[in-house]
Write a protein that binds this DNA or RNA. Structure first.
Lengths: 199, 199
DNA sequence: CCTACCGATCGGTAGG
DNA sequence: CCTACCGATCGGTAGG
């Protein structure tokens, strides 16, 4: 019997390291996890980690780049879809929150740990984050302004605020049910588009 | 000539440690800063730190407790003031953003570093944060619902979302001007109360 | 508050 | 020459 379909738990080598390191970094922070702990989680030696990755920062970089690259594909689908701005932003929310919480938590790493990295890597991640993630949101919002669907706000700033409301739900610590998560997402989009004030 | 008014740069002992540790923790993260680095910033030995604080976690705890205690006083003034919900929430925003960026950054520590602390301390900080900070916002929002000023939303969740929008502006890295900060705060409150959708 | 240290662990690398 | 690691240890630093 041959298993042609690899289960997530059956990952080996480089892919296993990326998965386990992402899991540990999101739980304890980049500086709160040692290469030894990552190696133990992978049931490898520390040296095996350094065979696959130059150093600890390189490991984090690859986690973030891999994630952002896959997110861009999902987000682009939402961006190119037909429908109102609100519907397309809803598509973006689906691209983010249909992922399992562990994948989604990688965004949290970008918010929390990237700022503490050395200048070069921080800049590199910042560019990727904008090009492949927040920039997609900004483009949709700009189109909404151009088509007179939303009021003329700064797209960059308002994209940042929209993502800011989602930020707490990127962290996997307080494991919410799917229902709780979507209740929150619905309220986020309601507030972003309508606000809470009685009219 | 006697200087009865102490400048912030003239702090000594415990107060100096609290200030320098807060500054370093907010820049590099709790796990990214060593006790040795804090000692050097204070021009003390490491042992002097352990004279004033039990250990590294205790030092962080005292930073957060001191901050939350002073914030509660400010926030309570906003809560008890007369005016609409929107005006009182505006007062809360003033209490937060009239502080200098370094003080404000302590909230960032609560968001980013408290989750990685051990269970006991995390719970203690979480309770203080809710009692003295987010809970004040929730109360104001609940009153707004009771007085039919805003639509019936979950006060806890919506307070979290409002603070989520402010979150990026708690971090002192990208030092914004006061004007940029208030442009952002105005947009945050506009979105929270009115949304961005054309009507 | 300092000098003088500790057990252990850090990120990273050697030859095979 | 390669990929995919191993056991052991490097020079320094962590919190206490």
């Amino acid at each position: 019997m041959s298993h042609t379909q690899t289960q997530p738990t059956e990952l080996v080598g480089r892919e296993l390291i990326l998965q386990e390191a992402a899991r540990l970094f999101t739980r304890q922070g980049y500086n709160g996890i040692s290469m030894r702990e990552i190696a133990e989680a992978c049931q490898m030696t520390k040296a095996a980690l350094y065979y696959h990755f130059t150093n600890k920062q390189d490991l984090l970089r690859e986690i973030l780049k891999t994630y952002l690259s896959s997110m861009q594909q999902q987000l682009s689908l939402a961006k190119e879809s037909s429908g109102s701005v609100r519907q397309r932003i809803y598509g973006v929310a689906h691209a983010i929150f249909d992922q399992n919480p562990q994948q989604r938590a990688v965004i949290h790493l970008i918010f929390v740990d990237a700022p503490h990295l050395e200048e070069n890597l921080r800049g590199e991640i910042g560019c990727l984050y904008h090009d492949q993630f927040s920039g997609v949101l900004e483009t949709i919002l700009q189109e909404g302004i151009d088509h007179n669907e939303i009021v003329p706000v700064d797209p960059r700033l308002s994209a940042q605020l929209l993502l800011g409301m989602m930020y707490p739900f990127f962290h996997p610590r307080r494991a919410l049910t799917s229902e709780e998560t979507w209740t929150a997402v619905e309220l986020i989009l309601k507030i972003f588009f309508e606000g809470v004030e009685k009219r």
